[in-house]
Every structure is written in C-alpha cells, then in structure tokens.
Simulated scan of single mutants.
Amino acid sequence: MSRQSPASSTPLADSAEPPLTPDTLVLDPQASRVLSVFDFDGTLTRHDSFVPFLRFAFGPRRFHQRMLKLALPSLGFLARRVARDQLKARLINVFLKGIEAAWVQQQAEAFCQRSWNQLMRPAGLLAVTDELRSGAQVTLCSASPALVLQPFAKRLGIELIGTELEVIDGVLTGHIVGNNCRCENKVLRLESIYGPLEQYRLRAWGDTRGDRELLAAAQDAHWRHFHPAWRRGQLAR
C-alpha cells in the first residue's frame, strides 16, 4: 500500500483497497483494527498548552519568578548547547518539584474548563469524533505531562499517552519517569500499550519534528492537517 507523505494533509489511498467506512469496519475484521493517534499541542490545539497551564496554575507573579530561573537554560537551548528534552526536564523541575499531585490535577481540571473553547481546534475535535464513530481505538500521544492532559482526554472520550511525572507519597519529585514522550519514544510508548503497530492500520496526526517517527510508522499520516494551508509546509527533518 502506498503511504502518504507527512507533508500532505490527505492520505494516499491504494486504489485496490476500499475506503474505511463504518460498513467496511463491520464487514472486514482486519479493517476494524484501526489505531488513531493524535498529537495534542499544536495539532488538536491552537498552540502549546503546558506553559499556559503553568501560568494559569501558579498565577502571573509566581510564574514569572520561576521563569527567571530558566533564563540561562533557555539561552543555552537557543545556542544549541542545551537539548530540548533537557530544557523540558528543567522546566518541570523548577515548577513542579515538591508540588502535590492532587493540586496539579485540580488545576488541570480548572484549566481544561477555562481554556477549552479558546485552545482547541474545532476541526480537530470533529476528527476525533469521526474516528471514535468509525470504531477505531483513539488515543492522544503527547510530550506534555499526562497529569495535565488527563481532563482533556476524558472530555474527548479517548485514551491518553503522555510524559509521566514521578510522584512519591502524593508529591511530585520534579523528575520525569522514563523519557519525554516525543520522537521515537512516541512509537515505543504506543507499542508498550497496544503491542506491535504492524497489527493495526495506524492513522496519525502531528505537527512538529517530535511527531516524525510517529507519522513515519503510520499508513495514514496527517501533517498539520488542521492548520491553515499556508502553515503546513514540509515536515522538519
């Protein structure tokens, strides 16, 4: 079967294969094994959600005070001396070390309720609904902390794979469990939960370099599918 280039927003369909519809999902048991995977930030949302969440949760004053501690690591990132994952780990440590997980969950619920209409892309929400109605297994797969995204996944009615934060005795340690859920780790996390991806017809939506491996593994890969056409461009290498 011909695979779509991630730069395109429309999957390339094999002319010998019938399109996936609710009817074919019932008639063809193999076709029912569809796994639909959505990146969250920038794909289903209009922009990043984690930093706005931190500002919402801590308030402008504490947010800016803590962001000052990230000035040097941020400059190192811009100078390519600090890796993206290192900067992410530092951000989590500065803001969440010693914070009760229950408090973060409460703030995440409030943030989801407050920001939903402004944050979420309507076309993305319709796509999630269509995938659920088709009978596919649907999940988010995001580098943002799962603790923060759980209310969004619950409201969407889908599963969630995100970066896991270490919690000891109900308190966040400021460390990530395992790896940041981006690049090849998205594929590894999917396989750890769903098994070998070859057993599925994998459909994937993403919008950054961190989604490249996920999109490469998919039969139906959608690059910046919900973005304006002028913003889609080419998938970064």
Score class of each variant (00 low, 15 high):
197 L>I: 06
162 G>S: 09
199 Q>D: 02
139 T>H: 00
162 G>V: 04
147 L>W: 01
145 P>H: 03
193 I>K: 14
205 W>R: 07
152 F>K: 00
171 V>S: 07
209 R>H: 15
177 V>K: 11
158 I>G: 00
186 K>N: 03
136 A>Y: 03
127 A>F: 12
178 G>T: 09
183 C>S: 15
161 I>D: 10
151 P>A: 06
135 G>W: 10
195 G>L: 04
145 P>M: 06
173 T>V: 04
206 G>P: 08
138 V>F: 02
162 G>P: 07
204 A>C: 11
154 K>C: 00
194 Y>T: 01
127 A>V: 08
157 G>K: 03
214 L>K: 07
175 H>I: 07
133 R>I: 07
206 G>Y: 06
185 N>W: 10
186 K>D: 01
207 D>Q: 13
150 Q>C: 09
184 E>Q: 12
183 C>E: 15
209 R>L: 15
135 G>R: 06
151 P>W: 03
141 C>T: 00
149 L>E: 08
189 R>K: 11
204 A>Y: 11
179 N>L: 10
209 R>K: 15
165 L>V: 02
194 Y>D: 03
177 V>G: 02
147 L>K: 02
187 V>S: 07
204 A>V: 12
151 P>H: 06
169 D>P: 06
196 P>E: 10
199 Q>A: 09
166 E>K: 09
181 C>M: 09
201 R>E: 14
201 R>I: 14
148 V>Q: 11
197 L>N: 03
191 E>F: 00
145 P>Q: 07
176 I>V: 14
205 W>M: 06
198 E>P: 09
151 P>M: 06
203 R>Y: 09
203 R>K: 13
215 L>S: 10
157 G>L: 01
184 E>T: 12
202 L>S: 05
200 Y>N: 01
191 E>G: 02
197 L>S: 03
152 F>C: 00
152 F>I: 00
179 N>I: 02
132 L>G: 13
136 A>L: 05
132 L>D: 04
150 Q>V: 12
206 G>V: 04
215 L>Y: 11
128 V>D: 04
190 L>M: 02
183 C>N: 14
185 N>I: 03
172 L>C: 05
211 D>Y: 05
146 A>L: 10
161 I>H: 13
153 A>S: 07
208 T>K: 07
179 N>S: 13
168 I>A: 14
163 T>L: 08
141 C>N: 05
198 E>H: 14
198 E>K: 15
179 N>D: 15
178 G>H: 10
164 E>H: 07
193 I>W: 08
193 I>L: 14
198 E>I: 12
132 L>N: 11
166 E>N: 05
162 G>W: 08
141 C>E: 03
133 R>A: 15
133 R>L: 11
143 A>L: 12
154 K>V: 03
139 T>M: 01
166 E>Y: 01
207 D>Y: 11
203 R>A: 13
208 T>M: 07
173 T>H: 01
142 S>M: 05
185 N>H: 13
206 G>L: 06
172 L>V: 05
154 K>T: 04
185 N>V: 08
163 T>I: 08
206 G>C: 09
136 A>H: 11
169 D>T: 04
196 P>H: 08
171 V>I: 14
182 R>A: 13
171 V>Q: 13
213 E>I: 09
137 Q>T: 14
128 V>L: 00
149 L>D: 06
145 P>Y: 02
141 C>L: 08
143 A>H: 11
173 T>M: 02
179 N>C: 11
141 C>G: 04
147 L>V: 05
201 R>Q: 15
149 L>N: 04
213 E>D: 14
150 Q>H: 15
201 R>W: 14
